[in-house]
């Protein structure tokens, strides 16, 4: 018996609906159909009237969730693909993210973003949006990389009184498996050392954790021990765990699937350069997707995003500097 990343997301929503009558799910095709990825499969039947199809109106989907949250509900809204959340961007960043600061009324909504690239996804079904949402004050941005985190962090997201952008990676949906759902979890906001090492710190999150772990494994034969940190939430960013690791290793590589300009990798490096300059034995480096739209053809796509091979190559450069 095993459970996939996607099943964990479905199970978390099922449990949230069962445990809390204030929870409801709203989004395109989430009802009887069960969602484009089946993340809400059978939930409409199990919880009548609480898992509802919406029109193709991302702005209204988020706006309605905000109003419902003010009235005490705990809405989970699904953007069919993270890319389409730009059509709801205004409600997310101007209404949800500012509500507590302006009015002292919290806004407990969860916006689920099926994120990241998959084979053949192309420019508009592949994007990683975490940097955009992290830029705005007033949002929590989660980027779970494991089945366990997909489950426990989504449950925590529903319980948090503030708006949570939940970036779940589509590439992990079906192939990433765990033996069972977790009974306990690290709280959001805390990074996890996914692999201990002494020679360099590799900070990453979401699907890039798995490319990074593979790269670290590949470098063992060459005698290198890479410490891999899974950020889990990119906002808040657990700077302390990163700095403590860099203090041990003296070298830093940050890997992200998102575009390079001004993103999570840039933020991590800025903080380490500012707070831990003296800890570094080499200039900190990053590896991101290329600065173009996400391409359609599998060969282009595989070269566009960081892979284990590319991560390993970048690590070798860093380690010999």
């Amino acid at each position: 018996m095993s459970v996939t990343y996607l099943e964990a997301i479905r199970a978390a929503q099922e449990r949230a609906l069962a445990d809390d009558p204030r929870v409801f799910i709203y989004g395109q095709d989430v009802g009887v159909f069960g969602g484009a990825f089946k993340a809400t499969k059978n939930l409409a039947a199990e919880f009548p009237g609480r898992v509802m199809d919406s029109p193709i109106s991302e702005d209204a989907i988020v706006g309605m969730a905000i109003g419902a949250a003010v009235e005490g509900a705990r809405p989970i809204v699904e953007m069919q693909f993270a890319d389409f959340s730009t059509c709801g961007l205004n409600q997310i960043v101007n209404q949800a993210a500012t509500l507590y600061y302006r009015t002292n009324i919290p806004c407990p909504i969860v916006v689920r973003l099926p994120s990241g690239g998959t084979v053949g996804g192309g420019p508009f079904h592949s994007q990683s949006m975490e940097a955009i949402y992290s830029h705005y004050p007033g949002l929590v941005v989660m980027t779970p990389a494991t089945v366990e985190d997909a489950y426990s962090m989504l449950l925590e997201a529903v319980a948090i009184d503030d708006p949570v952008i939940f970036c779940e990676h589509k590439l992990l949906y079906y192939h990433l498996k765990a033996d069972k759902l977790p009974d306990s979890a690290m709280p959001a906001g805390k990074a996890r050392i996914a692999r201990a090492g002494r020679d360099a710190t590799l900070v990453t999150y979401s699907a890039m954790l798995h490319e990074s772990l593979q790269a670290a494994e590949d470098l063992v034969e060459e005698g290198w021990q890479i410490e891999v940190i899974d950020l889990r939430t990119v906002k808040p960013l657990d700077t302390d765990t990163v700095l403590a690791s860099v203090a041990r290793t003296g070298r830093l590589l940050v890997v992200g699937e998102a575009w390079p300009w001004g993103g999570v990798s840039a933020e991590v490096i800025a903080r380490v350069a500012t707070e831990g300059f003296g800890l570094l034995d080499a200039a900190p480096v990053r590896l991101n997707a290329k600065d173009t739209p996400v391409p359609y053809h599998p060969d282009l796509w595989a070269a566009h995003r960081p892979t284990a091979t590319a991560v390993a190559a970048r690590l070798r450069q860093l380690l010999t500097q």
Partner: peptide
Amino acid sequence: SMVAMVGGALYARRQ
């Protein structure tokens, strides 16, 4: 932006 928000509030009340 307020149209959907007020609508959502009414939705929650009805629920």
